[in-house]
Design a protein around this nucleic acid. Structure first.
Lengths: 233, 233
DNA sequence: GCAAAAGTGTTACTAATACACCCATGG
DNA sequence: CCATGGGTGTATTAGTAACACTTTTGC
């Protein structure tokens, strides 16, 4: 026996929902699709899974081809497989989402895809079911970041607590009390205070912190309560 | 243009991880695989996704063909796609997990698959990567049930608080204090006390409760804290 | 010296834990 | 009348939320 008989074979793709944070708002890395149909329309970065490649490998390859980055936070989001989601032929998509530091030095956008960072609040129309993918990813991030230290993946290695607070406020679209916020994040024991300050956003300057990698890895999956009840989700 | 050129097409399957609870322990519904390779080995119930079928439809069809049930709790678990997970040919699997009341009247196992309810503690060897699927499903259930009222899906419409507690204790393999447990679940406001009692497991009898469907649906996604810190997961 | 952002402490309230006795019933 | 499991209350502790003033420093 060589193959299963009488079954439909389908294209399998992965699409990457790539989030970044510029210090003020959440952004998505989108491309202009390079081939028909829907050529030159805004799209998530994606590609077909190859013959000898797993999903994660494919997603990492696709992310790398656009950004030049490896070792980025990436997580399987959901498998989308409605029969006519791609009008050309049956294509299922295993979507991955990625959080990365938008200002990191290694990030070098390829010219091949006409990629741009687009603020989430100004999302253009996207091809196929990509809008739904983005919404699913956002929901997931809001859910997960309420309990796990996920959003640190969007920040540079050194960051200040006010920066972190702006990030949380952007993700949940609420305002937090800075005393309670600071107490809460420090109480996780994940942050190490640095001796130097960021002087860019205030005269006084705000102390930098770094993640304690050891504890971060150990506690990532514990329930940490960063956000009380995130708008009942 | 009719098709994308130069890409590999693959079989797409769904596998169903079907959980039940017999009042004492968690069980999995497994079948004896009916065709080569690995014929007659223990396997999850699965099947190929058809040409004009989405994943959820396929999973529901497969579940129905085994159990006769529709409208069962079912959730996409994860997409498994390692290149050689099926030795015959490249097959990706979108796994779904299901929670159902093992004693419900509608449940009628098909004879075609030699299915059996197997206690999770006595799992036999499974084909392919099915063991990993089961582990992933268990992890997901333990995670989700700690914060959401998920496990009610395993119980009959009328159940007692001691029954509920036994279920939680089976899932997390710990013992809870019955006073605190009862206060916790009642404080969610999801349970409606009935006037009749279950007299099967004690002379005194335990009051039945039913889910308040309205509040259950409304609060399902809120963070409800059924289990404090589920073993740091 | 003033504008702008950083940093910090206390109190009130709510939730979680630990713990022990009485109740109802069938045999 | 006793064995079995069901049901309940309280005190302590930990966590969360609300709230306002002082510090630093570049201009």
């Amino acid at each position: 026996m060589k193959r299963y008989s009488g079954q439909t074979r389908m294209l399998v793709a992965t699409d990457c929902i790539i989030f970044g944070f510029d210090g003020q708002e959440l952004k998505l890395l989108l491309i202009k699709r390079g081939f028909e149909p829907e050529k030159n329309k805004w799209s998530l970065m994606g590609g077909f899974v190859r013959e000898n490649e797993g999903f994660e490998t494919a997603a990492a390859r696709i992310l790398h081809s656009l950004t030049g980055l490896k070792d980025v936070y990436m997580e399987q989001l959901y498998a989308f497989g409605e029969p006519h989601r791609d009008p050309v032929e049956r294509t299922v998509s295993i979507a991955y989402f990625t959080l990365l530091d938008i200002h990191q030095s290694g990030l070098q956008l390829s010219n091949d895809f006409h990629a741009e960072w687009i603020p989430l609040r100004k999302l253009p129309a996207l091809i196929f079911d990509h809008r739904r993918m983005v919404q699913t990813a956002l929901d997931r991030i809001r859910y997960k970041a309420a309990i796990h230290p996920l959003l640190f993946e969007l920040l540079p290695p050194k960051f200040t607590i006010p920066q972190l607070q702006i990030l949380y406020e952007a993700v949940y679209d609420v305002i937090f009390d800075k005393r309670n916020f600071s107490r809460k994040v420090l109480s996780t024991g994940l942050l190490i205070k640095q001796k130097d300050k960021d002087k860019l956003s205030s005269r006084r300057g705000a102390f930098y912190y770094k993640l304690d990698k050891r504890r971060y890895n150990a506690k990532f999956n514990a329930f940490l309560n960063f956000v009380a009840d995130p708008g009942k989700l």
